[in-house]
Amino acid sequence: MAAFVHFLGLCFLGILVVVPWGAIASDEDPLQDVCVADVHEVNGFACKSIANASDFVSSLLRNAGNTNNRLGTSVTAAGAANFPGLNTQGLSFARIDYAPGGVVPPHNHPRASEVLFVVSGTLRVGFVTSDGKSTLFTNILYPGDLTVFPRALVHFIINVGDSHALSLSGLDSQNPGASLLPTVLFESNPTIGDDVLEKAFNLPQNEIDMIKAALKA
């Protein structure tokens, strides 16, 4: 029996030696929606030959964003594209300012989970599961509270207080992506066919037209 176990051990070691590690390792997560092969590009950004101290600090989130818009919110994001020191770290950060009633519409981040911290104000947040049951998990958050939005799940945020609110979010991707459902469904380029939208939402053509016009306005 001991000889047989010894033989199996030798076989396993032989496999480790013969099979390249790259063949049994998983691929890294993609950093963008698509990545058509180009020998001159990499999945992300190439590294600078010489790094400077200024590459690792950013004032992008120092000032409040303009919430004078239809949604009453402003999202200011810091990722590898505008904060070079984040490149290859798998991280990005965002500041969200809210007017009273301001909302971040249902959306998802296909490449990241998100942790949100409430700095000021009162927020109602929620996410919906993708297990076929579409279970909604929702909570009211106050200053100092944290919540998490699991990777790729549709979630939303709304300011339910009487004053302006501020939250900060950390995401575990340097390019998490963001798909706003209203934009994806009704303002894609080129547009999704109205025949698809009519059947998907069980709405007549005139109401589809009204939704598109309202979003454009």
Rank of each mutant, 00 (worst) to 15 (best):
A2P: 02
D33V: 03
C47H: 12
N139K: 15
A200E: 04
L180D: 11
A81G: 11
G161D: 11
H6F: 09
G9S: 09
N175C: 05
P20K: 00
T147A: 15
A214T: 14
L31W: 00
L180N: 13
K212S: 10
S54W: 03
N52G: 05
A37N: 11
K212N: 04
V36Y: 15
G144D: 08
D195V: 09
G90D: 12
S169W: 01
S74N: 06
L197H: 08
G161I: 06
L181R: 00
Q32L: 03
L8H: 06
A64T: 05
G44R: 05
K199L: 07
F137A: 07
L16T: 02
F201A: 01
F4Q: 05
V5R: 03
S134T: 04
L146W: 11
L91G: 05
P176M: 12
H109C: 10
F4M: 02
S26E: 14
S26P: 05
R95Q: 06
L31V: 00
H155G: 08
T76L: 08
I211A: 11
V125I: 15
D162E: 13
A213T: 09
F7I: 06
L168M: 14
N82A: 11
R62H: 10
G132E: 10
E28N: 11
G161F: 07
V196K: 10
A214Q: 13
G79A: 13
P100C: 00
L10Q: 15
D131M: 09
I208L: 14
G72N: 03
A165C: 07
V18P: 01
P105E: 01
D195H: 08
L123K: 09
L123G: 10
T76V: 15
D194H: 06
N69D: 01
G132M: 13
D209H: 13
N68F: 04
L31Q: 04
G161Y: 08
N52I: 01
Y98R: 08
N159C: 09
H155K: 12
S26T: 12
L60W: 01
L61C: 09
G44F: 06
P190W: 04
I50G: 01
F45N: 08
G177E: 03
V119D: 07
R111L: 05
S92W: 13
R111D: 06
I96Q: 03
I50Y: 11
S188W: 00
Y142L: 10
A2D: 12
G144Q: 01
D194L: 05
G22K: 14
K133N: 12
V18Y: 10
G9W: 04
P105T: 05
M210W: 01
L116C: 11
F137P: 00
R70C: 02
D195L: 07
G22C: 14
E198P: 05
H6W: 10
L141Q: 10
K133H: 06
H109G: 12
L203E: 00
V36E: 02
E198A: 09
A25I: 00
A99G: 02
P20M: 05
L168S: 04
I96D: 02
P84A: 07
H40K: 14
A23V: 15
L16Q: 02
H40C: 07
F127M: 13
N108G: 04
Y98W: 02
G132K: 12
G9I: 02
A46Q: 06
V184L: 15
P204S: 10
L203P: 04
L91F: 10
V42M: 06
N63A: 14
N69L: 04
E41F: 03
V34Q: 13
H107T: 14
L180E: 09
F149T: 04
R151A: 12
V34M: 11
L116K: 00
G170L: 09
